[in-house]
Design a protein around this nucleic acid. Sequence first.
DNA 1: CAGTATCCCATATGATACTG
DNA 2: CAGTATCATATGGGATACTG
Lengths: 130, 130
Amino acid sequence: MPVRAVNLVRMAESVAPPEFDPRCPSSDIPVQIGGKWTGMVVRCLQSGPRRFTELREPLRGVTPKVLTETLRAMERDGLVTRTVHDENPPRVEYALTPLGRSLVPLIDAARAWSEEHLPDLLRARETYEP
Amino acid sequence: MPVRAVNLVRMAESVAPPEFDPRCPSSDIPVQIGGKWTGMVVRCLQSGPRRFTELREPLRGVTPKVLTETLRAMERDGLVTRTVHDENPPRVEYALTPLGRSLVPLIDAARAWSEEHLPDLLRARETYEP
DNA sequence: CAGTATCCCATATGATACTG
DNA sequence: CAGTATCATATGGGATACTG
């Protein structure tokens, strides 16, 4: 399996601890938002709204349970909207909100980093010995 | 505990699945690099080399075991160097490599995102109801 | 179609104690 | 000082089967 790129998949909502240490500007306690699939969902929705199964397809390997959890969390955080069209069979569409769209540059930056630096990282990994 | 910012804490080394779906440019299978503390270690080392205990201090809450694991992984990936000075008591210094330093803009971008958008996310979280 | 309902498991993280 | 060594556990992620 060839290595392709690096995705941003997790971010942390950081909370200042009671005893914030000014010597390290990021000595925060992280509380995570996002997860394994969040970044990929954002990218999949970039080109427009998609239905549940339309998301499952390109995200090969994601189980319906996990995709549901991911989408619910993103909805809760205001990253996507969930629209139920009253039809039969049911049709549910997910779309990015402006907030969700604002993540795109960050994800792109992570991928750009990977395209530029991943070979170095992998080389380091190969030559490393404990 | 006031919310301060958002840190990038995880990234995924993405591997193309056998059946890559062209409709979604990021339908990759992620294999994670990084972890809860990696981003903070990078930021702590930004201002120069630090010793093990000098890292433990600002990263309140990290146990020696976990900090060791984090640093070893970062060393393996070529993000930091570990220099043992032959003295007594022992002195070990960790420093960013150019590769490690190249992560800084990405981490800063994540923090910038948070400073700009975290209030929106938290507001969405509060008004959300299942 | 768009999910739920269960069950399961690896692993990331942490608590605590000890050492060359 | 700079770690190891153990042990414990929460939870993110997955497998599988079922449903309005």
